[in-house]
Amino acid sequence: MIRRLKDSTLSQGLTLLINSRIKSYGKVLNLKVDSKQKNIELEILLKGEKEPIQVTVNEYEVIEEKGHWYLLAQEIVTSREWINIVAENFLKGQRFEIPEQYAKMLKLVL
């Protein structure tokens, strides 16, 4: 039960974070965190597209370092081949800082 609450809180926070970062490109329709399996599943509707894309982040890590929180994605797989290439070249293994307002949520559930 605690893990489900944690996953739900992380899902809500990540949805807000990602939507704030991609608002020029589209929006997250659905996001689900599974902390036991260490994966995140997203459904994103990009502007100009009729069908949403499916995104799976496998082997993610949430890292705290010197008071800052980061999300590290080891593998990103999407339903669009060209986005898989972009993810491999620019996102894989990159740390993304989690803004303080969302990091506070993490502190409560981790």
Results as ranks from 00 to 15, higher is better:
Glu75Thr: 10
Ser20Thr: 10
Ile63Trp: 08
Tyr25Gln: 09
Gly48Gln: 01
Thr9Met: 14
Val55Asn: 00
Glu43Ile: 03
Glu41Ser: 11
Gln101Val: 13
Ile83Arg: 02
Gln12Cys: 11
Glu81Phe: 10
Leu5Asn: 13
Val86Lys: 11
Lys38Asn: 06
Glu61Ser: 08
Glu49Phe: 14
Asn58Lys: 09
Leu71Cys: 00
Leu31Thr: 00
Thr56Gln: 09
Leu72Met: 09
Ser24Ala: 15
Tyr102Leu: 05
Gln12Leu: 15
Val86Gly: 06
Lys107Arg: 15
Leu29Val: 05
Lys23Gly: 05
Leu45Asn: 00
Arg3Cys: 09
Val57Ala: 02
Glu49Thr: 09
Leu16Ile: 09
Phe90His: 11
Ser20Lys: 12
Lys23Ser: 13
Tyr102Arg: 02
Glu97Tyr: 08
Gly93Glu: 08
Glu51Thr: 14
Leu5Ser: 14
Glu100Arg: 09
Leu72Gln: 02
Lys36His: 11
Gly26Ala: 05
Gly26Gln: 00
Arg4Glu: 15
Met105Trp: 09
Arg21Asp: 12
Leu10Val: 07
Ile83His: 02
Thr15Lys: 07
Pro52Cys: 04
Ile83Tyr: 05
Lys47Asp: 10
Gly48Tyr: 02
Leu5Val: 15
Lys27His: 14
Thr56Asn: 10
Ile40Val: 04
Arg3Met: 12
Leu10Pro: 01
His68Phe: 14
Lys104Cys: 06
Ile44Glu: 00
Ser20Asn: 13
Met1Lys: 12
Glu43Met: 06
Leu71Tyr: 00
Val86Leu: 15
Tyr25His: 08
Ile2Trp: 13
Arg95Gln: 15
Glu41Ile: 08
Gly67His: 05
Trp82Asn: 03
Ser24Val: 09
Lys47Glu: 11
Leu91Phe: 13
Ser8Met: 14
Arg4Asp: 15
Asp34Leu: 05
Met1Glu: 14
Tyr102Ile: 06
Gly93Arg: 08
Lys36Gly: 07
Leu14Val: 03
Val33Asp: 01
Ile2Arg: 14
Ser11Val: 04
Leu45Val: 00
Ile44Arg: 00
Leu45Ala: 01
Trp82Gln: 05
Gly26Val: 01
Leu72Ala: 04
Gln74Val: 10
Glu59Trp: 05
Glu88Pro: 07
Glu41Lys: 13
Gln94Asn: 13
Glu49His: 10
Val33Pro: 00
Glu41Leu: 10
Lys47Cys: 07
Phe96His: 07
Ile63His: 08
Ile63Gly: 06
Phe90Tyr: 15
Arg80Pro: 02
Glu65Thr: 03
Arg4Phe: 14
Gln101Asn: 13
Glu41Arg: 11
Leu14Phe: 06
Val33Ile: 07
Lys47Gly: 08
Leu108Arg: 12
